[in-house]
Design a protein around this nucleic acid. Structure first.
Length: 290
DNA sequence: TAGATTTGACCCCG
DNA sequence: CGGGGTCAAATCTA
């Protein structure tokens, strides 16, 4: 497999926590701006344009929320070693090989009792977001279930972090379609923060790793969700002028370009992307008059 | 061939 | 007891 950069090489040189706090602050400002932007957008008289713009704002909010959550949990990791988030009700697929069941035949599988539904005692970090692009939140998710929900027109889809096994990342999300609009709206419920984010993306802009990639993935998969590959985002933008995607603006340089050719203080790719988002947001907010 | 998805059974909680 | 969440074998797909 392609070489992954070891974590040790990537650690920020100076004061990571200061940088992180600064980014968190910026993201929070960004969230406020997104909200005021949303109010402005709602005044757009043309339905089509308004919906598209609202979708963009919604995606920005999603991006900011997930970015914030990443950074905040990262900060917790740096500040103390208690990884309670990771242990939150995660007995993790430890069902010792249960009974065998043919797809068409019902065979009772032995199951161990375990805590379910995290509502037992402790409070799980839960966020709800409405978006048209539930997949675009920069993380790699693996679907593990789908369920018809009472009084709901659409089934609820269950995803867990694609690294839940390897890194015991407890993050999960439920996605439920809300309506039949052209780009339908989805309600995304995020449960638990990612704890796998301390790892870094591969040089993903060379090719889409997609599924048949390395079996021993050590990095975030930013393929579909993919903020991380700014080059890929650029390509995407050029090809289809993504409106509903979360990458509404494109940085003029990529992470690799920036840091391979300069001695700027090194941000992690995640932090780099957040900075790009904030800049994009601010640029749009102040300059998008047309 | 390995990773991702599908899907019905299983399990817990209200 | 029913609804919601999860498991895991079967199946799909790249």
């Amino acid at each position: 497999m392609a070489m992954r950069r070891p974590k040790s090489e990537m650690s920020p040189p100076a004061s990571p926590s200061d940088q992180r706090d600064a980014v968190i602050e910026e993201l929070q400002k960004g969230a406020q701006l997104a909200e005021s932007l949303r109010q402005q957008v709602e005044l757009i008289p043309e339905l089509g344009r308004r919906d598209a713009a609202l979708a963009n704002v919604s995606n920005i909010s999603t991006a900011l929320a997930s970015s914030l959550s990443v950074l905040q949990s990262e900060r917790e990791q740096y500040s103390c070693s208690s990884s309670d988030a990771a242990t939150a009700h995660h007995a993790a697929g430890a069902f010792g090989g249960g009974g065998v069941r043919a797809r068409n035949g019902a065979v009772a599988r032995p199951r161990k009792t375990k805590h379910r539904r995290g509502t037992h005692g402790e409070q799980l970090p839960i966020k709800e977001i409405n978006t048209e692009t539930p997949e675009n939140d920069r993380f790699h998710w693996r679907k593990y279930g789908e369920k018809k929900i009472l009084n709901a027109d659409f089934p609820r889809l269950y995803y867990r972090c694609g690294y839940s096994d390897e890194h015991k990342c407890p993050a999960k999300k439920y996605v439920q379609q809300q309506n039949k609009n052209d780009p339908p709206m989805f309600m995304v419920t995020l449960i638990n923060d990612h704890t796998c984010h301390t790892l870094f993306p591969a040089e993903a802009d060379q090719q889409p790793p997609s599924s048949s990639g390395s079996p021993n993935l050590q990095v975030l998969d930013f393929t579909k969700a993919s903020l991380s590959s700014a080059a890929a985002v650029t390509r995407m933008k050029e090809e289809e002028d993504v409106v509903a995607g979360m990458y509404v603006t494109v940085p003029s340089y990529t992470y690799d370009e920036l840091y391979s050719s300069s001695s700027l203080p090194l941000l992690s790719p995640t932090e780099f992307e957040m900075e790009m988002e904030i800049k994009s947001l601010l640029r749009r907010h102040s300059g998008d008059g047309s």
